[in-house]
């Protein structure tokens, strides 16, 4: 009987595996292998590079700058985007009239094509403050604006779902005791929302590490790498500079960073679940 069950499960999951593995697992292995070689994308043979590409990466100022920009994105999401999303969620939760309309407006950007988001902001900024996107010091802030515009509604709705699961009676009991709004938030809402906050932080961190579309379409990493991210840089190295091995090495670093932060956050979630 168990053997029979084994086969059923395999048959049912096989079609998905047959599409998933060749198109995802094999390309990943291929990238890893290529990262230990030099190749211009045309020559018939690859040249063994050992860890040459990784050494280049360690010495490449633009690589580190790109990584720093990714980290700015992470920091901005955690320090500004998520707290504002939490504020909006708490305020929306208490609004009875028109809350649906407001929720729609705040969430709408998230479902738009990234091409539309990037070009709406590029057009708007080019028309109103033309020097903004060209400024090496300020162009990254334009990216932060567009990225926040895209994602804040998503996190707001995530928090709303979490708030909806909190037992109202907790607040009523606290209010009878004369607890202030802030204390209610601090001692009831925040602790109970911890699992949701960790999930949203995980998505924000991993999303910021692998971000590509809006930067590629708004600035292309320019001016002079002022908005370059790891993903846009590896894309340039592979598809514009024909350095396939180097591009793959950056890709491997990106995968390690993204999956590493995912595992770290899942561990944090497990630890915080256990403490409750």
């Amino acid at each position: 009987m168990t053997r029979c069950r084994d086969l059923r499960g395999l048959w049912f999951s096989a079609p998905a595996a047959v599409v998933y593995l060749p198109l995802i697992a094999i390309p990943l292995a291929y990238s890893l292998y290529l990262s230990f070689h030099y190749w211009d994308g045309r020559a018939p043979a690859w040249t063994a590079a050992g860890i040459g590409n990784y050494l280049d990466m360690a010495k490449d100022k633009v690589f580190w700058r790109s990584l720093a920009h990714n980290l700015v994105l992470v920091a901005f999401s955690l320090a500004v985007q998520l707290p504002v999303a939490m504020l909006l969620a708490v305020l929306l939760e208490r609004t009875r009239r028109l809350d649906g309309l407001m929720r729609t407006c705040v969430f709408l950007p998230y479902v738009l094509p990234t091409v539309v988001i990037a070009l709406v902001w590029r057009s708007l900024i080019t028309a109103s403050v033309p020097e903004w996107l060209a400024s090496p010091d300020w162009s990254l802030s334009a990216i932060l604006l567009a990225v926040t515009w895209r994602f804040i509604g998503f996190h707001t709705v995530l928090y709303l779902a979490g708030l909806g699961m909190i037992d109202r009676q907790l607040y009523e009991a606290a209010r009878l005791d004369g607890t202030s709004e802030w204390q209610c938030f601090r001692h009831i809402t925040l602790p109970l929302m911890k699992p949701v906050i960790i999930v949203s932080a995980t998505l924000a961190i991993v999303g910021s590490m692998k971000y590509f579309d809006i930067v590629f379409l708004m600035t292309g990493g320019d001016p002079d790498h002022a908005t370059e991210l790891l993903a846009t840089y590896l894309f340039k190295m592979g598809f514009a500079h024909d350095r396939m091995g180097y591009s793959s090495a950056i890709a491997v670093a990106l995968v390690v960073l993204a999956l590493g932060s995912t595992v770290a956050m899942l561990q944090l979630k497990r630890w915080s679940d256990r403490r409750q």
Binding site: D6, Y20, S31, V206, M209, K210, G238, V255, A258
Partner: peptide, 29 residues
């Protein structure tokens, strides 16, 4: 169902949620 390699396949599938797709671009190309 329980089947051989279930956990392994599940983890591989779920890793896809967090994977930077850009690491697959050159190979797919």
């Amino acid at each position: 169902f329980n089947f051989v390699g279930k956990k392994c396949l599940w983890i591989t599938l779920m890793a896809g949620l967090f994977l930077p797709v850009h690491a697959t671009l050159i190979p797919l190309y």
